[in-house]
Structures are given as C-alpha cells and as structure tokens.
Design a protein around this nucleic acid. Structure first.
Length: 422
DNA sequence: TTTTGCGCACACC
DNA sequence: GGTGTGCGCAAAA
C-alpha cells in the first residue's frame, strides 16, 4: 500500500475520530484503519510513525494521554471548524505548509519534543505536549530506559504496537484526575510509538535580524514547534547536551560533544539571546579545525570530481574526507565531509551535478541519482531537512539516514557555521 | 459486540 | 467568552 494512501487513511481516521469526539489515540486509529481498510495495526502504526516524523500527524499529550492530530488542523487554535472540511488534497497542502511553517498555535503549548532524532531507536516522532507538565514524563522515562509503561497503561493490544520504536509514555495525569487507566485509557499510552516530552518555553525563534535566523529560518520556526528532527541538528544536539547528555552520547561522539560543550562554554552561542538549542550546531565546529577523519588522519577522497563540474567550484584537492562517522564515532569511513571553508564558500554554488557527484563520491551512487532527479543543488541541499532526505528522495532508509546524518547535516552545519563566521 | 453520536466538563487562550 | 478536546454514556448498526 502506498504511503500516501496510508496518509490519507490515517488522517481521515484521525479526523473521523475527532469529529465524533473520540480521542484519536493509537488504538482507535489502528482499529479504525483496520476496520475500514483492512490494514494491520502494525503497519498502521508504522505509517503513523512516518507521518509523525514528517509532521503530517502530530503526536500530542493531551490531558495526560496521547492523542494524534492532523497537523493540518492544529496549526492555529483559532482556526474555525470550517477548515476541517478541507478536502484531503487541500489538507495535504496545508500539511505541507504545516510542516514547514507555523504550528505553534495549533495546539496548546506544544512544542518540539526534546528528542534526539538522531537516535533512531528513540524514534523521531513528533510529540507535542499539550499538557502543562508533561515534560516530567515521557522523555525522562524513555530516556532513562525505563521503558515500561506505567501500571495500568500497558499495551494490552498486542497488535497495536510499534515494532521499531520503544519508548514509553506513561504520562501522568497532570491534574491527577485521570491516572490513565480505565476504559478511556487507550493502550496507546502504553504503546510506544514514541516517547514524548514537552518542550517548554523554548524561545520560538531567532531574531529576525540574526543572520542565523535568516539562514536558519527553517530551523527557527521548527525549533519553536516542531520536533527536533525538523530542527537544525545542532539544535537538537545542543538541547540534548543540555538536558540529556546520556542520551546524546548515543548519537553523538564524545568528541562532538566535547566540541559542542567547549564551544558553548566559549559563549559563542549566546549572542542575541538565542538559546543554545537554536544555534548552529557546534559539533560541526569540530570540523573547523580538523576536517579530520575517523582514524585521525585525513583521507583523500576519491572523488569523481575530476570529471564533474564539481571541481570547478570546489577545491577538490582540499576536499579532505571527513567521515561523518568521524564526527559521530570516529569510525567508519563511508562518509565524507568537506573542508569547511571549501564547502561553505561553495556549497551555494553547487549545481545539481555537483551534489550528485558529491554523493556518488561519498559512496552513494544510487542515492546520488535521486538527488539528481530531484534536482537538488547546493542551495536545495542546504534547505533539506531530515524528512526530506528520508522520504523525499525515495531512497532507502538506511542510506538516507547515513546521507542525512553524515553528509547533509554536516554540510549544512559547516556551511552555516561558516556563514556565521563571515 | 462494535461503532457512532453527542452532552458536558475541562483546558487553554 | 471562544474554541478545542475527549470522557462517558446512549443509541445505532
């Protein structure tokens, strides 16, 4: 079944549940999808996860329980109900808009989950918390490995679970009025498609005047209301560093972390009163000085640059390979990074061919084709978000993840960092 | 038994 | 006060 089909089904289901005043929780969604379309709950759950990741569906913690929202309909709380009559098509476009713009007014107090999207197991779901104190719950619990649903919230519906993610969400009822069990308590609570966490009052955006705000416009608004995965990677990491180093370590190398911390301590990050988590990542800064590689020595990248336009714009001789993993764990070398200055100066000038060449050279020839076919040039590359890479290119998840984590992200960081320096 | 409709209370702005 | 949400119950399928 196509994803778009699922998207439609799930969104319709959520809408339907909402319209009949039933909580759109995972159990109900899965059940309804299965009843209506015969889809297995597992699959529905997986698709739902995807939708969450791409922010077509928002996962919220409302009144102590998890609900799912059609992102297109929660953009603005003041929005009239008429909007609910949007056609699917219209809704989709709205969703698109939602994923890239303002969701902040959609539901009460929601914001991005402070979840390290880089941690795949931790999942990348959007989880917004509409409750006032949900930050006490999901994140900590899931992060701390207490992945056990709280009593009374076990996932009884075995068919409704996520196979790929395991987190826990055992939201405590903020008001204490609903401990979470009982008829109304959906297994979805114990169901762990996501860990969620409230994001509190994180500054919602960079100052408009900030070069970074401009440069990271996308990130800025995402930082306010979107899941970390949509934010600038550095923000995620920064925030994670501030709050959950242990978790961070899962996805970020000690080196990176160290660089990050060091940088932050250097006070570089606080200008304009911007919270660290909104700043351009620091661990890219690690590239600054080193452009190093996994094993500590520069690895000449055997780029096909000789035959590509690439070389016209980049000094490929200085195209020192920096393994993405070098950043992350100092190991594998199928990644490539670029000398910061070179990239920064030239990334904007990369043509589609350059980008494709880059990924070809990085060991992703098949995926390079996708970049080419999607006409991703340097500018587009800079604008790419995780979900774009994971889902927008129709490439396999594995390579997509590597590409995003080791290349796109690194290139972006490097570029923006350079912009900042300039 | 399951699904649907909806009154009402609550939360948030 | 306006709006969104969803519990809990009754009715319908």
């Amino acid at each position: 079944m196509s994803e778009s089909k699922y998207r439609e089904w799930i969104l319709d289901t959520i809408d339907s549940l909402r319209s009949r005043k039933a909580r759109p929780d995972l159990e109900r969604i899965c059940r309804m999808v299965r009843r209506r379309h015969g889809s297995e709950p597992d699959r529905t759950c997986a698709e739902l996860e995807k939708l969450i990741q791409e922010q077509t569906v928002l996962k919220v913690n409302y009144k102590g329980s998890i609900s799912y929202r059609n992102a297109a309909k929660v953009q603005r709380r003041s929005r009239k109900k008429d909007d609910a009559t949007l056609t699917t098509a219209a809704r989709r476009s709205t969703v698109e808009e939602a994923s890239h713009s303002d969701l902040s007014n959609g539901d009460s107090a929601f914001g991005p989950v402070d979840q390290d999207d880089e941690d795949l197991e931790a999942d990348t779901s959007v989880a917004m918390d509409t409750d006032s104190n949900a930050d006490e719950e999901g994140a900590d619990e899931s992060r701390d490995g207490q992945d056990q649903p709280s009593p009374g919230r076990t996932d009884e519906d075995a068919s409704v679970h996520c196979s790929t993610v395991r987190a826990v969400s055992a939201p405590c009822s903020p008001s204490g009025t609903r401990p979470g069990s009982g008829p109304g308590c959906s297994p979805a609570l114990g169901l762990d498609c996501v860990s969620f966490q409230k994001v509190g009052e994180r500054p919602s955006s960079l100052p408009p005047s900030s070069p970074r705000a401009l440069t990271h416009n996308d990130w800025a608004y995402h930082s306010a209301v979107c899941p970390v995965e949509r934010q600038h990677p550095g923000m995620q990491r920064d925030k994670a560093a501030a709050t959950k180093p242990a978790v961070l370590s899962v996805t970020t190398s000690p080196i990176a972390l160290k660089n990050n911390v060091k940088k932050e301590e250097g006070g570089k990050a606080e200008d304009s009163g911007i919270s660290a988590d909104q700043l351009v990542p620091d661990y890219a800064a690690g590239l600054d000085e080193t452009k190093i590689v996994s094993d500590g020595r520069p690895q000449p990248l055997s780029l096909p640059s000789d035959k590509y336009t690439f070389k016209n714009k980049m000094d490929t001789s200085s195209f020192t390979a920096v393994s993405g993993d070098g950043l992350l764990n100092g190991a594998k070398g199928d990644g490539v990074s670029v000398k910061k200055e070179k990239v920064s100066q030239n990334l904007l000038q990369w043509t589609v061919a350059d980008v494709a060449s880059y990924f070809t050279a990085a060991g992703f020839p098949e995926q390079a084709v996708a970049f080419r076919s999607q006409e991703i040039d340097g500018k587009s590359l800079l604008l790419m978000q995780r979900s774009d890479v994971l889902t927008g290119l129709s490439i396999r998840l594995g390579p997509a993840l590597k590409i995003y984590e080791r290349h796109v992200k690194v290139l972006q960081r490097t570029h923006f960092l350079e912009c900042e320096d300039l």
